[in-house]
Amino acid sequence: MSAPARPESIALLERLVAALQARGLVSEEEIAQRQASTDRASPEIGARMVARAWADPEWRRFMVANGAAAAEQMGVSMAGAPPLGILEDTPHLHHLVVCTLCSCYPRAVLGYPPHWYKSFEYRARAVREPRAVLAEWGTVLPAGMQVRVVDSTADYRWMVLPLRPAGTEGWSEEQLAALVTRDVMVGVALPRLPVAAAAE
């Protein structure tokens, strides 16, 4: 019995890598390093940045002024990565990130984008009817909150710095970071307290 046929895309990738290596454009080591750093990136990094910004006003100013430098302080190598922009939510303004052209996403601090972020539906609707999209997510904005959709079309990558939820006074940065999910940093969701904490 023969092994299942390999997808043509795998063979194509192997030929591309071989051609790049033959020309000295990329080494096996560089590819392995990039794969490792891509795999290491996860929303936990962004969550730690947000939690620290909530806890420390000086760090918050530093992060908003230079997101990439803040990510570097969290141990992320931003060499070769696009600049990282921070979108500060306020009591009157909520940000929602989309890339209508393709799927630009702050991978360095959020990891791989979820499938829905790359879907035609999200990309078309987030920019056109963001309030309807948020409602389908179960995200209820307070009355009077303005929605600002950030269409990530060029050289920056954007993450949302949401409002710190009420009822988290005195929490540690670790506790705070646990509230900050990937969806919160894209802007489709708001940080939510665990039911037990909210009931206290």
Binding site: H95, V127, E129, R131, V150, T153, A154
Partner: peptide, 11 residues
Amino acid sequence: EGEAGDGLLVE
């Protein structure tokens, strides 16, 4: 679509 003050911020 949207409410007064809603916006699109684009590069």
